[in-house]
Computed example of a mutant assay.
Amino acid sequence: MKVTPTAIPDVLIIEPKVFGDERGFFYESFNQKAFNEATGLDVNFVQDNHSRSAKGVLRGLHYQIQHPQGKLVRVVQGEVFDVAVDLRQTSETFGHSVSEILSADNKKQLWVPPGFAHGFLVMSESAEFLYKTSDYWYPLYERCLLWSDPVLSIPWPLEQPPTLAVKDTAGLPLNELELFS
C-alpha cells in the first residue's frame, strides 16, 4: 500500500498494491493492520456505506458537527471528482480544500479525517462509491457546506449544473457554518 499526503497533510491518498494479469486483477481493498501501519493512524471503522449515482450528481459537502466521521472512500465503478474541506478552526489549513479523481480504474482511496466536509461529483455515466466511517451516521448532527461557496473556490469539473439533493441545495456558506474548534 502506498500512502501519499495531499496539500492538506491529514488527508491521505491510499493506493493499494494491485496484482493483475490477463485473467483480471486482485487487491486487498482494506486491511486494518496494514492501514494503521501505513498511515500511522489508529482508526476503528464502524460502518460501511455504498451509493450509486448518475453522471452530474454532486453529493455534499457533508459532515457531522457532533460524532464527526473519518471516511475512507473509494470508487468501484465509474469515476468521481472527490473533495475534502478542512473545517477545523484551529488548523493551518482551515477553509482549504483538496480534490482527487477516484475511479474504478485507478483504485485510489482517500482518507478524509474527522473535522472535514466531504463530497463528490460523478464524472462518468454512473459511479458506485464506497466508504467506511469511523463513527455512525447521526442525522441530527449532519450539516452541509454549500458546494458552490465562492470562498472555497473548488474547481468542480462541471459540464452543466449538477444534480443536487434538497439538503445539498440548502447547504450553508463557510462563514455561516457550525465549525470544529
Rank of each mutant, 00 (worst) to 15 (best):
L72N: 10
V75D: 01
L72R: 02
L146D: 08
T163A: 14
T4C: 05
R143V: 06
E79C: 14
E37Q: 15
G115C: 03
D42V: 06
G56M: 10
D86S: 11
T6I: 04
S51T: 14
D135H: 13
R52E: 01
V73F: 12
K107P: 01
G119T: 12
L145M: 09
F45S: 13
T163N: 09
L72A: 09
P68N: 07
S181V: 03
D168C: 15
K2G: 05
V46E: 07
A170W: 03
V18A: 01
N31C: 06
L110S: 02
P155G: 00
Y136C: 00
H96P: 03
Q64K: 10
G171E: 04
V112F: 11
F25I: 10
L164S: 09
C144K: 02
L110E: 01
R74F: 03
D86H: 04
V85A: 00
P9K: 13
R143D: 11
Y63Q: 09
V80T: 07
T39E: 03
T93W: 12
G60V: 03
L177R: 07
I13T: 01
G40F: 05
L158Y: 04
L158G: 06
R52A: 08
S91A: 10
F35H: 03
G56Y: 12
N44L: 08
V11D: 00
G60C: 10
Y131E: 04
G60H: 02
E100D: 11
V73D: 10
G40Y: 02
G56H: 08
S97E: 12
Q89S: 13
S91G: 05
F26S: 06
E79K: 15
K132G: 11
E159W: 09
L12C: 08
Y136E: 06
Y141N: 14
A54S: 14
P9G: 07
D21A: 11
G60D: 02
R88F: 09
F116H: 10
F30G: 11
R143S: 15
V73T: 11
K132Q: 12
V57K: 08
Q109R: 10
G78T: 08
S134I: 05
D82K: 00
K71V: 09
P5Y: 06
S153M: 00
G115V: 01
A7W: 00
D82E: 02
E178P: 05
R59H: 07
Q47S: 08
D21K: 06
D10V: 09
D10P: 05
I14T: 04
V98G: 07
E92R: 08
S51A: 14
L102F: 15
L145G: 15
K17F: 07
A84I: 00
L140K: 12
G95P: 09
V75I: 10
W111K: 06
S124W: 03
L72P: 03
I13R: 00
A127Y: 00
G70T: 13
P157S: 02
D42W: 02
Y136P: 00
Y141L: 04
F120S: 12
D105C: 12
V151T: 14
S53I: 08
K107Q: 15
H67T: 15
L12K: 14
V18L: 01
Q77W: 04
F129A: 06
S91H: 07
P114F: 01
G119F: 07
V85N: 01
T90H: 10
K17Y: 02
W156A: 06
L174Q: 08
S29L: 13
L152H: 04
T169F: 00
S53P: 11
A165R: 12
